[in-house]
Structure formats: C-alpha cells, structure tokens
Design a protein around this nucleic acid. Structure first.
Length: 428
RNA sequence: GUGGAUGUAGCUCAGUUGGCAGAGCUCCGGAUUGUGAUUCCGGCGGUCGUGGGUUCAAGCCCCAUCAUCCACCCCA
C-alpha cells in the first residue's frame, strides 16, 4: 500500500524549525504592538466571490491558483489565497471601519496552487498588516518605517531594499493602460511571448518584463508618470519626504506594479537578492477603493503582507537566528535507581515552578552513560544527578555541561536558589 | 502551466561494461562499579520513489507516473 504523504507544496514545520518561527513571530508581534496595532483572526475559508470581487477576476491568482471547492450544501468556497480581502470582509461585517480608524494585523496560512519552488509553496504563511480610515501619506509612511524597524530588529536591514512607486488613481491608470496597449499593440511582433499574452490579460505587468527587447520597446512607450494626477503626485511626494526624514532609504521604481487589482497610489516592495527568484519578502500598498468595491462605504486603506517562509529562509541563510533561540531545555535531570527516580520526579516538578527554568526529566531508564549522552544532546546547560549517594546525603549533584566548571553537590533545600543564580547572568 | 536536474538506510551520499545492497553520520550496546562532546569495537536499520517493460539476471537499460530542487511564469 502506498504510503500517504503530505500534499505537494504543503510542508510540515518540524520541531527543530518551530523555534525559528516563534522567534520571528515574537519579534514581529513586539514591533507591531509598539506601534499600537491589534491582532485580528479570520477564518481560512471564505466564499469564492469575496476573492473574485477583490483580487480581480482576470488575475492569475483567481484564474488558476485558487483552491476552490463546493461545500456540502453547494456553496462555492475558497481557501484564502491572501488576507486583505478577508480582513476587509471581517471589519465591514462587524462595523469596525464605520467612521473609525483601525490598525490591524493577522498571521496565518494562505493557499495558492502554484508550482512549488524555493520560497514559494502551495500553503504558505503571511503576516499581514492593514489600516483603515486614514487617507494621508502619513500612515503610508508609518507602515513603511515600521517595516524598516522590524528589519533592524531581525538583523535584516542590510539584506533588503525598498522599492517604491505610485499607481495614481483608477481612472488615470485605465487611461494609461489603454495608451500602453495601443502602443504595444502596434509592436506585438517585438514583444516576448509572455508579454504578448499579458497584453490582453494584465498589460501593466509588461512593465516589469525581464525580456531585454521588451524593455527596450518600453523606453519609447507612454510613461506612467505622465498620467499621474496632482493629488496622487502630491501624496507620493509627501510620503517620500517623510521617509527621507525618517532616514529610510528607498528606490523609486516607476515600473513596480502589483499583481492584485485593488492597489492604487502608493505601492512598495521590500526585495532581497539572497533568495533567488522569489526575492520579494514584504509588499503592499494603498487600496482606497476596495472597501467600497466590497459593498462598504468609501474607506481609505493601506496595508502590506510579509512572506513568513521567505523571511525565515533569509534569517537562516544570513545566520541571523540567535543560538539561544534553538535551545529548548535549560536543565536535564537524571536518576539512578527506582527510589532516586521517584524522589527526583517530585523534585523537578517543584523546581520548575520555583525557578521557571525548562527542566527535562530523563524517562525510559538506560545506563548512566546513556543518560549523560542524552543530557548532552538535549542542549541543556546543566545536568542534575540523583543516585543512592545523593539520596542518603540529601543533596543533588549539579553538573555544568557547557562551561569548564566542577560539578558540585547542593543540598536539596538550596537547589532552587543555586540553579536560579546560575541562569541569571545570561538574561541579556 | 513550461523547461532542466535529481529520487538508494532516519540524514548526507557511493554503487564500475547489467552479476550477492555499501560508507559516513544518527541511534543502541561495549572498552572494570556512577559521568557527555574525542577515540576504538560491535549491532539495529533497505519495497533502490511507484508501476510496467527488456533480460538467464535490473539500483543501473526502456516507457509511464509521482515527488523534490532550480529556473520561467506568478507572487509574499
């Protein structure tokens, strides 16, 4: 019988990896909390129409990447391919953005049926941040500065660069799109195959084509900047100024467009060249029209999402995960003989409460030597030994496993204090 | 969806013109009574991704299929 394996592109996160995930998640929560952002938790499944109406019917995500299925009662449901739509739906449904300002974040799995690759999986995880009710560039700047701060907290500030652009308003974008299609349509033969296809599906995407001939052709094409209205231009200029003042470096990239239809005005991407083809580690922008598009009142909004797998990959390749993060046990306790074990069993339980230290008790017997081996492998700094000798004397042997210090015998009453003091100095 | 590379022990990988399935690491045990990381000895561990085919004989050749990795594409 064939063994059952995990679904393609959907990964188990194993015990040696979860500490890294927790490290990242904790740092992110810490930073977002400092800026006053609140967590929101949403279902993973939504009505299919939510994504069709928000992301855009003709985008790749909706056309060929969604996990869509029929519920038992015939409703079309979809495993969420991104978080923004759900977030807007939830806020709208519960009146969170009716005449109100919100700063929110969420985290969890997203699903897209793509061909798996480094940094790209069918179930992947995003940490998303969305804000509602603020139309000025100040909140755009806050979001970007906040991400820059986060990179510093993670030690990634030298590994990522910020790309920034404005997409103007919807009407101007439509005008530009038309002119661009007309111009490129007259030179179809010079476009690469992918761009030819995009001419009818998603013409703006042609702007970031990697084909040199296509790029040459674009030099003489209509320029998007000439289509931007005054309001968007001013919004963008004020944003740039705020970033300058905050000391956040950016690169204005006029050819940066996003794959989701709802973006307008500000768009940005944090990109690394350490991860091969999937270099975008965080991306977002303004989507003032989306709430209304989903049936709410017109509500300005900006947000972004981070790719958790990609950030972890980046942390790992750059060696930015502190060693202490991977250490799961402080103390390994072992006993020789049934009587000693019985005594140790109760003792470590008390010690855990008294000291808050992570104590692993050896279970399953085995020779003393093999227990020592386990203690070593556990990564613990200290081993506690309890045998007949110690039982008789009312002491426990405390053996440092990492430092070149002598082991010593400590009376049971003093054990908690002794251990606590051994772990104080490395709090920072 | 397209192209390329790769699937052999839990992990990393050898395996010759087709001829008995291998190593290192891990794990378990031992090298004088209760002391780990080094060293030495021994042991456990296999549907050679899966299904067909060719052959006296297939890990190796052929076909199909699945998966992984990388790139295109897409995107976080």
């Amino acid at each position: 019988m064939a063994r059952i394996k995990a679904i393609r592109g959907m990964n188990d996160i194993l015990p040696d990896q979860t500490p890294v995930w927790q490290f990242l998640e904790n740092r992110v929560k810490e930073v977002l909390g400092r800026y006053g952002y609140a967590e929101l938790r949403m279902p993973i499944v939504e009505q299919t129409d939510l994504f069709k109406r928000s992301i855009g019917e003709v985008t790749d995500i909706v056309e060929k990447e969604m996990y869509t299925f029929e519920d038992r009662n015939g409703d079309s449901l979809t495993l969420r391919p991104e978080g923004t739509a759900s977030c807007v739906r939830a806020c709208e449904e519960h009146g969170l953005i009716f005449n109100q300002v919100q700063r929110l974040w969420y985290m969890g799995p997203m699903f897209r049926h793509e061909r798996p690759q480094k940094g790209r999986y069918r179930q992947f995880h995003q940490i998303g941040v969305e804000t509602f009710g603020m139309q000025g560039p100040d909140i755009d700047a806050e979001l970007i500065v906040m991400t820059a701060r986060l990179w510093r907290q993670l030690g990634l500030e030298d590994a990522v660069t910020l790309h920034l652009n404005t997409l103007g308003n919807a009407a101007d974008r439509a005008r530009f799109r038309e002119d661009l299609v007309n111009y490129l349509g007259a030179h179809v033969d010079k476009l690469d195959a992918d761009s030819q296809r995009r001419l009818s599906t998603n013409p703006l995407r042609i702007l970031d084509s990697k084909d040199p001939q296509t790029q040459a052709l674009l030099d003489d094409a209509p320029h998007f900047h000439d289509y931007i209205d005054d309001e968007s231009r001013e919004h963008f200029e004020r944003l740039c100024k705020l970033l300058d003042q905050a000391g956040v470096a950016y690169e204005v990239n006029a050819r940066l467009v996003r794959g989701l239809d709802y973006y307008g005005k500000t768009v940005f991407e944090w990109i690394t060249d350490e991860l091969g083809a999937q270099g975008t580690v965080c991306a977002g922008g303004r989507y003032d029209g989306l709430v209304e598009q989903l049936g709410g009142r017109p509500t300005p909004a900006v947000g972004f999402a981070m790719g958790v797998e990609r950030l972890i990959l980046l942390l790992e390749t750059l060696g930015k995960v502190p060693d202490a993060v991977r250490q799961q046990v402080d103390i390994y306790a072992m006993a020789m003989g049934d009587e000693a074990f019985a005594r140790l069993f109760g003792l470590v339980d008390t010690l855990r409460e008294q000291t808050g230290l992570r104590i692993q008790l050896h279970c399953g017997g085995g020779s003393f030597k093999s227990q020592m081996k386990k203690a070593d492998r556990s990564g613990a700094r200290i081993a506690l030994l309890l045998g007949d000798d110690e039982c008789r004397a009312g002491v426990v042997t405390v053996k440092p496993l990492r430092e070149a210090l002598e082991q010593r015998q400590v009376p049971v009453e003093q054990l908690a204090d002794t251990l606590a003091s051994m772990f104080v100095e490395d709090q920072e």
